[in-house]
Each structure stands twice: as C-alpha cells, then as structure tokens.
Amino acid sequence: MTIRDVAKQAGVSIATVSRVLNGSDKVSPDAKQAVDRAMASLNYQKPAIKRRKPTKLFAVIVRNMTNPFFAQLVDVLEEEAYKHGRSILLFNSRNNLQLEKTFMSECVNHKVDGVFLIPRSLKPQHLADLDALPFPVVLLTATSNQTASIGTNHRHGGELVAKYFVEQGYHRIGFIGASDKLSDRFIGFRRELERLGRELPEQRVLAPYTSQSLQAFISREIAQQDTQLEAVFCSDDICASHLYNAMKAMEIARRKQVEVVGFDDTFIAQSLGFSSVRQPMKQIALLGFDKMIAALQDGELEQSPTLLEPTLVVRHAPAITALERAPEILRSE
C-alpha cells in the first residue's frame, strides 16, 4: 500500500495524507478521520523516516530581481550562507505564480536543504502545499499565519507616511502604486489620512500605472498650478523614481516642490535624495536564516509569522555622493 492508495481510499489529496502522517495541525478533523480509517482499512504502515544526506545547498526564489531591495536581501542571505559553509541557488519567478511552482519543483530535483521564498501570492491554497515538501520553506518580506514567515508591517509603513505628510501641513496629497489598491501600504496610508482628517480623492490615486497613465496623472495633478499636489506617496522606490524622471522629462520645474516619499529605502532613494520607508531588510534575512538553521537542526520548522516594524527616513538631498569601488571591468592584461 502506498500513500496514493490511502489518499484514493480516503477521498483526499496526497498532500492531505502527508500532513496527517507528519502530524500537521492544518488538517480538518473530518479529513484526518477519513485518512486514519483508510490507513486502518488498508493496513498501511508509515515508512520509517529516512535521513537524507544534506547538500549544503539553499534555494532562494525571488519575486523580482530587478528590484534592488530583493537584490540586497539575496546578498545578505548569500553572505550568511557562506559563513555557514553553504551555497545559494537563485531563482527569479518574475512575478509569475506558475514559474514559482516550477522552480519549487526544481528545488526538489536539486535536493536542496531548504528554500527561502519571496512569494507571489499569500492565498491559503497557494501556501497549502508547502508542508508536503521534503525541505523547510521560510517566507521572507511577507507573513502568513499558515507557515514560517518573516516580513515588515507594511500598513504601519503607510501610516508613517500619512502622519509625516499631515505634520508637514500638506493637504493636496496623492498616491502612486505599482499594484492595486488592495496593498497593505496603500490601505494603511489611506486609513491614517482619513483618521487625521485629510482627503485622498480617487483622482489623486494612480494604482497600478503605465507610462502613459503616469504622464496623464502628472499633467492633471502636478503640472497645473492651481491643483498641484504638495506630496505623493509611492508604493516603492522604483515607482518614486519613475515619477521623478517623468516630471524631469516633462520639464516640470516645480518637481522639487512636490515631496515624494518611496518605500524600501534602496540606493535609488538615497542617490536621488527623496524620503523613503525603510524595511529592516538585514534583520529579515538574518532571522529567516536563523529559523532555517534551527529547522534543520531540530527536524521541525516553527510555523509562526514574525512581523517587524519599518521606519521612515526623511531626506531632501542625496545621501550618496561618492562611493569607493574596487575595479569591476574585466581586463585582458
């Protein structure tokens, strides 16, 4: 008898049978009872746990490697892995859920010891299969009560920006987002503005955006003297840089009078000189690595989320003026 036979007899998925065998509490009582009855009926014997030889290899599945925040996160993970005598296998899902699943299968084929996942989705149905994998999976930058995860309180980050804008006396406030209006950053920002008595009309919200819609937004909400926005919160530093460069290309001389705040506080914000919400990126990476090592040592992954708090970094001039760099150009002699 195999686990497949038990699943067929119980009328459940193979993943559900696996969770029951592994003692997971994420199985309904009815499903557990059905699996127990099927195992008894088929006289199924749980196989002895086989300790597989560690490969000293971790995988990192990143949602978008073009985002400098994720590049910095991977850099910290790679450095920490090196300190522990391990290597990193890197995958870029390009915000594609199917590609993320494909890469997870590749991790199984490569027999990695564990996976750090920057997920495309936090929907329960997308996270349900993680327990059945032969290695621990730790989510980074996003949290879920369903699995081990470490992330940032994005709603609080949005609240920090709203409070800052109100403290500065701004009334004409806008938002530009890379995703839709369901993002925690936008929800926290909008709710805090409402609580503080500031309006955020729909025409001052652009989420998501394209190059054309961004130009139209600037022409309507920033270029006009009588309706010019005083401050704009952007969902990330890339978005903020798009706004900054678009205003520059449209030769809007008043762009410096519009306060722009981004999110992530990457080198983009630091070099262009705008404020940004800083995520505790290094702490996220190090705590995630600690949780992964503990799981490999104890044989069990702590299934709990860890939510870290962001900070708002206010600047009005570039923080990076000159960098000391070693030569990186390949030379023939």
Rank of each mutant, 00 (worst) to 15 (best):
G174H: 09
K248W: 02
E300D: 12
V35M: 11
E194Y: 03
R204G: 03
P29K: 10
A223I: 09
K123F: 06
I268P: 04
A207W: 06
K163V: 15
G23P: 15
T143M: 00
D237T: 07
L287D: 10
A148G: 07
F135N: 04
R198P: 00
E302D: 12
S105F: 14
T2N: 15
G23T: 14
V27Q: 12
S28A: 15
Y164R: 10
E302Q: 12
T311P: 03
K8Y: 08
K83S: 11
E192Y: 01
E167D: 12
A162K: 06
F69Y: 15
K56G: 05
S241V: 15
A295Q: 09
D75Q: 15
Y244F: 14
N145R: 07
T102N: 12
A40D: 14
D184W: 00
I320C: 03
L308K: 10
R52W: 12
I268R: 01
R63Y: 01
I49K: 10
Q45F: 02
A285C: 12
L117M: 10
Q212E: 15
L286G: 05
I187A: 03
D36F: 05
V258E: 05
A295D: 14
L301G: 01
H84S: 12
L117Y: 00
N153I: 05
A249K: 08
V277M: 04
F274H: 02
I218E: 06
N95F: 07
A128I: 07
A322P: 00
S276Y: 01
N64R: 13
D226P: 08
R220D: 12
K56T: 10
K291Y: 14
L57N: 07
P47V: 09
S183V: 13
F274N: 02
R198W: 00
I218Q: 02
A71V: 15
F91M: 02
I293P: 00
C239W: 03
K256C: 02
K26I: 15
L89Q: 11
R190G: 07
R278D: 02
Y164G: 03
N22Y: 08
P310D: 05
R220S: 12
R255V: 08
G114E: 09
M281G: 05
P310Q: 06
I61Y: 03
N109G: 08
A240I: 08
R254L: 00
D25L: 15
D5A: 13
G288A: 03
R52P: 05
T102V: 07
A231C: 01
D298I: 10
V261E: 01
K46C: 08
A231E: 06
A240T: 07
L140C: 13
R191V: 01
A294Y: 09
V76A: 15
E328P: 04
H242M: 04
N145P: 11
P201L: 13
V166N: 05
L243W: 05
C234N: 07
G23K: 14
G23I: 10
I3K: 04
D129G: 06
L140Q: 04
S13V: 01
M281C: 04
G288K: 03
V6Q: 02
F233H: 09
K8N: 13
H242Q: 13
I49L: 07
L286D: 08
R198T: 02
Q168K: 11
F267M: 15
P208W: 05
D129Q: 09
